[in-house]
Every structure is written in structure tokens, then in C-alpha cells.
Simulated assay, not measured.
Amino acid sequence: MNTLYPYVHASGKRMILFSNRRALLEQQRRQAQGTDATCMICQKLEYNFNHGMSSIEWVERNFDYIIIDEAHYLFQDALFNRNTEIMLDMVEQLQKSKVIILMSATADLLKKHFVGRIKKTYHVSADYSYIKAVYCYTTPDSVNKILNGVPPGEKVVMFGDNKKRLRTLHREYPDSEYLNSGNKDESLAFRQITQNECFSCQMLFTTKVLDNGVNLKDNAIKHIIIEQTDMVEFIQCLGRKRVQSPDDTITLYFLNSVFSIAGRYKDLKRDLAIVQQYLNARASGYEQGFWKINRTEYIPLMFDNSHHLVKPAYYKALSDCAFYRDILNKKTSLVQ
């Protein structure tokens, strides 16, 4: 914002900045105060589009620069929010007439999708020197040993995708908060993070509601625990901590569950096999016959309620399946 906006404004142009999370939107609105830049959450444009409004045409009429912060959202959220295809369609429709900037620390799938269509790439190298130690654990119960060993005055952030587990841990440790998308409006920690980029409790147990875009600037945060098998989410969670000084270091702990990864790989292989059957039927002109046979069978989340194959969800599933296969074949790992 500080670098791009003055150039856009001096050129007599207008810009819109999209974000994928409400916490990020609030931070962007504060940064945009005093300017004519428009800040909007992606889901609002998607909602308006689905309710008959000409959302993409509105963007086209009113803005010259379109910035999507944390743009991996287009694919990352597609398996549970199939409306991300609307944002992806907007980018593809307006890429020749507008300046579109996609920002992300985890842009691999974006670069694959838009290969040959990206005019310029800006790369900032990741610096993980602030991680003084990394520990891997294989049983969930190990987390209690980690938490019990945290000294007074030091804080912990734990990212996980099991709400019941995070809620249970919150109940076991009095000086803590549990944060998820359902309780963020009433959460003191969420309000503190969006306003001051820190939180007052010692331990914060959070879902992916804080997985990207949000800054945590607090030297007291010395421990980050991540229980995520998705590589993009893993990197995004790790990136929430913003280093303030050379001695601002953390210890990283992560759960390495082969059983969980194997389960996800098995599910994705099943889903992609069904999609391939659908693609074969469509190519042969038997799409209606496919749905007639399979209307009461299990349907992967890559299809919406109208039996439309959601492109970003399909691309994400293909990428995840290949990644999990490589982990199980010991060709890669969550931590390189």
C-alpha cells in the first residue's frame, strides 16, 4: 500500500485491494485510511455476484489496479468455498484490460495456473533464521508436554484443524483463548490481534482463521505449534510471526502424522478417480448418463450443487494428491 498507492494516485488511477480474511481486511482498512483506495473482502464480491449483481463489471468500471492479497486463496479455499472460482474468473476476464497484482508467499499453484500469462514476477526470499530450533512429534499427546514446559512470560500460538482438540486444550490451560471463525466476533484475542497485532493471554489455540495475512508482532511469542498437513497452510501459519529484532526468535513444533497424510491421500485418490470418470463421460458425450448413474452415490466436493466441476478445487486436489504421494514415497516432507 505505501509503495504502490502513491504511484497509482499520481497517475490519476484507482485501485481496489481484495483480502481473503476479515482480520486482514481490518488491517488493510487501517493502512488505507486517508486514501481513495477501496478495500473489500473476496467473499463480498462472490456474494454479490451470486445474488445477481454485476460485481465483475463494477470492478471493471471503477478500478484500474486490482490487487489480491493472499491470492493463494483462489485455490486454497476452493474445496470448501466453491465461490473462489468467481474471483478466478474475474482475474481471467480482466487480465488484459487491468493491472492485476497477485500477492502470496505460497504462490506455486498460482504460477502453474497462469503460466505464460504472468508479465512480471517479484520474488522476496523467505528468511527463517528466526527459528532457533525445530521439533517434530508423532503423537498428539506430546503437545501437553510442550505446553507444560513453556516458561512464564513466554507465549504460544498453536494452529490446528481439529476444533474439538483445540477447544479441549483451551479448557486445560486457564491463561489461554480458543479462536475460530465462529467465535471471532466475540473474541478478545481476535480484537487485540486486528487492532494491535498482539494478544494478552499466554496461549492462543486457533484454527486457520489466522492462517494468513495477519501480523503477530510480539517478542513474547516464543513457541509456534502447527498441526496442519497442508503445505500452504503450514507455511502461512508459520508466517504469522513478524520478527522485530535479532533476538526475536521462536521454537517451532509440528505434528508429523503419516496416518493422517495417508488418509488424505486415499480420499483424494478416490475423489480424483470419480472426477476422471466424469471427464471421460463428458468427452464422450455421456455427461447426463454419468449423473443419472451416480446421482445417489458419493459426489466429491470438487463439484458444486449443480454438478459443475469447480476448476480451482480440481487443481488444488490434483496438487495435494501429488504432494501427499511424494511424502508417502519419501520424496519430500512438510519441512524441507
Rank of each mutant, 00 (worst) to 15 (best):
S104E: 01
P174Y: 07
S129C: 07
I299F: 02
A126R: 11
C39Y: 03
Y122S: 00
F199W: 01
D211Q: 03
S11P: 00
L334W: 02
R29G: 05
G153D: 03
S129I: 07
R29Q: 14
N280G: 03
M231I: 14
A23M: 11
I101Y: 08
I100D: 02
C201H: 07
V99Y: 08
S306N: 13
H72M: 01
K132R: 14
F323C: 09
S55V: 00
I274T: 13
E60R: 06
S19R: 10
R82A: 04
Q33H: 05
F80Y: 15
K292P: 00
K111Q: 14
N212A: 13
F323D: 10
L94W: 02
I221L: 12
K155A: 07
I131L: 08
L169E: 02
V8F: 11
L272A: 11
L328P: 07
H9Q: 12
W291C: 08
F205W: 03
H308V: 04
P6H: 08
A78H: 05
V214N: 02
L268I: 04
S125V: 09
F199N: 00
K119S: 12
L188E: 11
N148P: 00
K120H: 09
H308C: 04
Q276K: 15
Q27I: 08
R21F: 13
R117M: 02
A37H: 04
V258D: 11
N305F: 08
D230Q: 13
R30H: 03
R117G: 00
D185S: 14
V232K: 08
K208G: 13
Y5G: 00
Y122C: 00
D89F: 03
I293G: 00
I250G: 09
K132E: 10
V115A: 14
V157N: 06
E287A: 14
R240K: 12
V124S: 02
L328V: 06
K217S: 06
L301C: 11
C136N: 05
A283S: 14
P300F: 05
D326Y: 08
S55C: 01
Q33L: 08
C42S: 07
P151R: 07
I193C: 00
A283Q: 09
S104V: 05
L252M: 11
N2A: 15
Y178D: 07
S176F: 06
R30S: 06
M302H: 01
L268V: 03
L216F: 11
Y135R: 13
H223N: 15
I16H: 10
F259M: 10
Y137I: 11
D141R: 12
G160M: 10
R264P: 00
Q276R: 15
S181Q: 11
G34V: 04
Y178C: 03
E46I: 04
V335S: 09
V99K: 12
T106N: 06
V310N: 01
T84Y: 10
